[in-house]
Every structure is written in C-alpha cells, then in structure tokens.
Design a protein around this nucleic acid. Structure first.
Length: 711
RNA sequence: AGCGGGGUGGGGUAGCCAGGAGAUCCCGACGGGCCCAUAACCCGUAGAUCAGUGGUUCGAAUCCACUCCCCGCUACCA
C-alpha cells in the first residue's frame, strides 16, 4: 500500500479576506509539501476549510446588518476561490457550517463528556444587557487596576502587559456598545486538559524531528501545567452543545475548528462514495500526519487537538510533525486587518502571476524567523532570480533549439562537462528532495535555482550560438543536455511553481501534467525528435514604479494619531502656531499649523489630532514643519481638527481595504491629489470609504457642513 | 512581567542543535566578457574582527554565563 500522508492546514477565519501572511504562514508550505509527496508516490489527503463560528463574525454581521451565515458565505466563497487561484491543491476545502461537521463535533464532544474529560463548572462572566449577550474577554474594556490605563482589555492590558481577568477591570465597559456590563453566573463545560499531561509528555518524547521553536513552546506549556479550558459559550452562533441542560449554549470555536481536521476527512470520503476511506489515514499506524500553521497556533495543534483525539478514540493517529512557520511582516509590521497593515490575496491575484508570488514567498519564507515582504525586494527577486536566472535559462534554451532544430535533438558523445551536467541534475534532484522531506522549503528552492544557474553557465561556456555554425552535431548534443536540465527543473520546481512547471513540461512534448509525473522523471530521457513550438516567456519582469503607481495614492500616506504636547506662537506670523506633538514610539515632532484663528492654545494642548507624518518637511516662515495636521474646512470661515478619540499617540489612521504602504517622503503635490471630505455623520470619506483609527471611525472635532474638504 | 525567536559585508539571508582551513547564497557597487536569450546571461574584484563582554577548548559564528538591542506569543489574528 502507498504511504499515507495526511496534511491538515489551519482553518482561516471567515471574517475577512486572506492576506499574504496566511499564504506564507501555512497554505503555501502545505501545498509545496503536498505536491512533493504526491510526486513521490505518497497517498496525500490535504484538507482545510473556513472557520465560520464565533463572536467576531456575529459582530461583523451586526455592523453590516446581515446574518453571520451571510458573512461566512461571502468569505468562504472568496477563500475557496483564492486558494484555487493560488494553486493550493486541497483535496477538500470545506467549512464548519456543514451538517457533517456539526455531527462530528457533537459526537467528539459527547464522547469526551462520557469519557469524563469534560465536566461542569459555574463561572462568573460579564453580560451586556444592551447587546443581550455574554461578552468575550476581548470585548470588555476598562481601567487597568495595575497601571491605570483606561483602555485595558478584559484579557490583558496593552500598556503594562499584565494578564487580567475581566473582573479585575474598573469601570468595565462593553466594547461594542459602551454600556456597563453586569456580572452573571453561568454554568459551563470545561475540557480537562490537565488529565492529558502525562500522556502528552509521553507522546512528545519521540518528536525530536520537530522544529525547536515548536518543541520549546509545547514543553513550556506542559511544564507550567495545562489549565482546563471552558469549551462552551453563551451565544447563538455556533454548534449546539449536545448535553442536557446546555441547549442554549454553543461549543467554543476553537474546539469546533480543530475538529474540522477529522470532519473534513470524513466529508472527503463521503464525497468519494467510500465513507470509510478516511480510516486509511486516521486509523493507520503507518500514516504520517502533518499540520501546517503559524506560530500563534502551535499549542492548539501540539497539545489541545492531540488531547481531544486521545480522549475521543485511542485508535486515531496523532500529529507526526507540526512545521509551524513564523510570521511574514509587511515592512517590519505584523499583518493586521484592524491596523490596516496587509497585502490582500484577492488584490495580488488580480495583478500578479501566482507563480511569481509563490516564488517570492517561498524564497523568503518565514521558516525560522519572521521575514519581511517588501515590494522592492519582490520586484528585485522576481526580475533577477525568477525571470533572469530561471525563466531566462528555460527560454533561451527552448527558443534556440526551436529556431535551429525545430525539435528535441538527440544526445551526442558525452564530454566531461556534459557528464558533470548530468551529475548536477542528479545532485540537485536529491538536494531538493532531501530538503522538502524535512520541510526545508527555502533550501530546496535555492538548490533548484542553483541548477538553473548552472544551466546558464553550461550554456554560456559551450556557446551553442557559435557551435551551430561550426559543429552542428555538437551543438545538438549541448542543447540536448540543456533540455535535460530544463526537464529536471520543471519537475523540481513543480511543488513551488506549479503553473509554470506544467507549461514547461508540456513544451517538452509531454501530453499529461507534470503533477502526475514522478519525482524521478527529473532524470528521465527526452522525447528525441519531438517537435518544439516557439515558446513564450514564462514570467514577466515587474516594475516597481508601475506597482506603486497602480496602488491607490492613499496608500502612500502615513497618517497617524498625534498628541499635542505644547503650543507656541510663531514669532513671525499672525495665524501660525508651532506645535510639538507626541507620536508615541515614533518620538516627538514639530509642526507649523495655521490654527490660531480657530483654536486657542489651551484648547489645542493635550488634544489628539491626526497628522501626515511622511510629508516632505517644509519651512514655513523660517520654521521647519515636520508633518502636517489634518483639518476640515475649505475657506477661512471654519476650520476644525479631526478627532481620533482616545487612540494611542503614534497609532495608525487608515482606510479599510486600502493597503498602507507609505513612501518615505511624500511630495506635497501627491498629497494634494488625495481628496477627503466630511459626510453627514461628520466622518471622513475618501472614495466613499471611511477613515479609521484604532478606536473606530475618525470624526471632526466640531460639527461642520457636509461635503467640506479635509486637508 | 513571563516565555519564545532573532541580531552574520551597504540590504536581505545560510551556517549554529552534532565546534575545525580563506564564513554561504541572492541583491547592490566596481571592472571585464558574451551577444542565443525578456538590456536577460557568464567571469572577476572590493566589502563582515559573525550585537557586546567574559569563559570552556589546541581551535568558537557555532558550546556556557552575563549584558544590550529588535520582533513575536501569552490560550479567537497564519
């Protein structure tokens, strides 16, 4: 029987689009690994799906005046499509709102309950009477009892870093509606994680092949002792708790989501008309289970999910490896929807070849530490490595052969150099394969790239363009070797660059897809005599300028909240103030602003305002202004500041859906072209989208007429 | 605060767990070659006391201790 490989990939939460962090974090590595395994004759089952329950989705639904299911439907559809476009080769990408999933989750839950791994316990938690729901810790805000920060969350205070219980907060408020929640007692069901400690310790004892970060994290949790965790919630959106007396409660989303690994396997079997087929992976000691996810998700997969499986059915396979990645950052910042830092997958798929993106994400994968996505580096690596080294070698070889021979020429007498080339192919195939077996994706890709660099060297030194005039037979022989390198590359690159590999494979006269080819076909003989067609270049060069120009000009802006520290009169101007503002971690700055007719010094001091931080500094009447504040009002009659609420100084101001990629210096001309206006709710609109800060929409400081400009 | 990861030529990175000659690769800079190829490719040169300090050792980027600096996680962000 073929070796069974199960690949579970973290379930994306269906409350927003996918961004490149998701791709680099788990979907791309999982896909590369899956494709590689399939080419090596393994029987792969790779599943995932949308995680569709939980509070955030219900809140989005309320905001948009629709149902949670509608939100889940929207993003499930988008995610499914994006995965396909990006070439992520799931055997099944499903969702947590299917009947099958519900059944599997409830069965697992009930079995754990019967096996005494789930028990009842009363807890006190906050209930918001206005929103009519119990509030998750993150949705409660109040004053931190330790440092006095007024914006501490129920789970933790961001200022002092202390971990809190919501009950610790003073003046607790509902983050959604702002009213004061009341404490209510409610009975919940808890998963007895503590009962699994010794079994888990035993289980991880032979996991020496795990990444050190995964192992350390896991061990650390175990050493501190596992805390039992509540796995029910008082809400409506979710899977019903199949225990008497708990009919009104729902199963906590993470319990629900990880169970997807099992339910999706079953669904896949049913779709196949062979409902027990999943057991070949799950009830098979020879099967290896891999889970791909990013670092935030480690304990769920290394501790909680294994515990659930152990408590449910001893015969089920546990994870073999959890090659968790670190994070991809965007110009040094973590991807975050709420802070407006992201490159969205739907956007990127519209603009770029998925293989180009896959290349950059693979060669720059956050395998061992966070890595940075920059547009500049993306363009450089695309142009120099993907296009220059790899694409060019393939293209020059096939073009030259086609032009001069029209078909794949036969092998000649092997020179020493030829032999070296054949050895290189073999070595590269082994190197890539060794690396991929260990989930070392960057090393594998680098090895494949080295082979294409060797191809270029071989081509250069043999000078077929001269040979064709002098020694046609030798020329044919050289090209034959080059084409063998091309063949090998299309196989070795197939896990990474599935679309272009397939094209090359077909150019070389193969009727089928490279994805049903075998890894050993990297070394296969060529179809000598097979006619060649004039090739088109595989990849395109990119221009950083075009990319930047295509982006919305708003992306170039760096808007931030600033707190006015000090206001002075400008010595040589009637209308100007000199403000010193605090940008938190970004330090302090001096701005010159014409606010004297509209605001007194006292009014301004201590106020939170919105400023442009990356505007080219200007000297105004002899004083350098390092930035500009945003205000609403066109003429001289009224000018009012923008009010970001009590957002942190230095925090970002952004528009959802427009990626924030500020240029280092923004020309004033470019800034002037960005038209923002005030709407009837006193919110700020740009292209009908609303300007946000970390505390929600930005509004004007005082009421002004609808439609006035912001500048 | 606790925990985890990281700091390697101008930028980015490999090597570190299993210590050994001039420290890897990509980009960039400089010089040269080639002209088949998407102004792509190839060759060569310069550039790093491997964050710092101390230790173990015949020998340390690698092991140990301490210090500094970045980043992340802390149980619903991949």
């Amino acid at each position: 029987m073929k070796e069974k490989i199960y690949i579970g990939v973290a379930w994306p939460y269906a409350n927003g689009s996918l961004h490149l962090g998701h791709m680099a974090g788990c979907y791309l590595p999982a896909d590369i690994f899956a494709r590689f395994c399939r080419m090596n004759g393994k029987d792969v089952l790779m599943v995932s799906g949308s995680d569709e329950h939980g509070t955030p989705i219900t809140i989005t639904a309320e905001k948009e005046n629709t149902t949670p299911q509608a939100i889940a439907d929207r993003y499930n559809k988008e995610h499914t499509e994006n995965m396909k476009q990006f070439g992520i080769s799931f055997d099944l990408f499903t969702r947590t709102t299917t009947e099958n999933h519900k059944k599997v989750v409830q069965d697992l839950f009930l079995t754990l309950y019967k096996n005494k791994y789930i028990y009842r316990k009363s807890v006190e938690s906050f209930y918001c009477e206005k929103c009519k729901r119990f509030l998750p810790d993150r949705y409660i805000e109040g004053t931190c009892p330790y440092c006095g920060n007024e914006n501490a969350r129920g789970d933790q205070c961001d200022e002092c870093g202390k971990i809190l219980d919501p009950q610790d907060l003073q003046n607790a408020k509902c983050k959604i509606c702002g009213s004061s929640p009341k404490i209510r007692t409610s009975e919940h069901l808890f998963l007895a994680l503590s009962k699994f400690e010794s079994k888990l310790l035993d289980w991880i004892s032979d996991k020496g092949h795990w990444k050190s970060s995964v192992m350390k994290f896991t061990k650390n949790w175990l050493e501190n002792g596992l805390k039992d965790k509540a796995i029910t919630r008082d809400m409506e959106w979710g899977i019903k708790v199949p225990v008497e007396g708990f009919e009104d409660k729902r199963i906590y989303v993470w319990f629900d989501a990880v169970t997807g690994y099992l339910s999706a396997s079953k669904e896949w079997s049913q779709n196949l008309g062979n409902p027990d087929k999943w057991e070949e992976w799950w009830k098979n000691k020879q099967a290896k289970h891999y889970y791909f996810l990013a670092k935030d998700n480690i304990p769920f997969h290394s501790l909680i999910w294994p515990s659930m499986l152990m408590g449910y059915d001893e015969s089920l396979e546990l994870p073999y490896d959890i090659p968790a990645n670190e994070y991809l950052t965007l110009s040094g910042e973590q991807f975050s929807k709420s802070r407006g830092v992201a490159v969205w997958v739907p956007d990127i798929l519209e603009k770029f070849d998925p293989d180009a993106v896959r290349y950059y994400l693979s060669i720059n994968m956050p395998e061992n530490k966070d890595t940075n996505w920059t547009w500049e580096d993306f363009v450089t690596k695309n142009n120099n490595e993907l296009v220059g080294t790899y694409g060019n070698f393939v293209h020059r070889t096939i073009t030259f052969t086609q032009k001069n021979f029209g078909e794949i020429p036969k092998q000649g007498i092997l020179s020493n150099f030829d032999k070296e080339a054949l050895e290189k192919i073999e070595a590269a195939s082994k190197e890539v394969s060794d690396a991929l077996e260990k989930c070392n994706f960057k090393i594998g890709l680098r090895s494949a790239m080295n082979l294409s660099q060797f191809g270029n060297q071989y081509f250069d030194q043999n000078q077929p363009w001269n040979l064709i005039k002098e020694d046609e037979e030798r020329c044919a022989a050289v090209l034959h070797i080059c084409l063998k390198i091309v063949t090998a590359l299309s196989v070795l690159m197939a896990p990474y660059l599935p679309f272009s590999s397939d094209k090359i494979w077909n150019m070389l006269g193969h009727k089928d897809s490279v994805h049903i080819a075998n890894w050993d076909d990297a070394l296969s003989e060529l179809n000598v005599g097979c006619p060649l067609e004039k090739p088109k270049p595989l990849f395109e060069k990119l221009s950083l300028k075009d990319i930047m120009a295509e982006a919305d000009p708003f992306s170039n802006l760096d808007l931030r909240v600033a707190k006015v520290v000090e206001v002075k009169d400008h010595p040589d101007a009637d209308r100007l103030y000199i403000l010193q503002v605090d940008l938190g971690d970004l330090g302090k700055r001096v701005l010159v602003a014409g606010m004297k007719p509209y605001y007194s010094k006292d009014e301004l001091t201590g106020k939170n305002i919105v400023i442009v931080t990356n505007l080219k500094p200007a000297t105004i009447r002899g004083v350098k202004s390092d930035g500009m504040l945003l205000a609403a009002g066109g003429g001289t009659d009224t000018v009012v500041l923008l009010n970001p609420g009590d957002a942190k100084p230095g925090s970002a101001v952004f528009i959802e859906g427009i990626p924030k990629e500020p240029v280092s210096v923004l020309e004033f001309e470019d800034f002037k072209r960005i038209k923002m206006t005030v709407d009837e709710k006193q919110q700020i609109k740009y292209k009908e989208k609303t300007l946000h800060g970390e505390k929600g929409p930005i509004v004007t400081d005082k009421t002004v007429e609808k439609g006035v400009n912001v500048s």
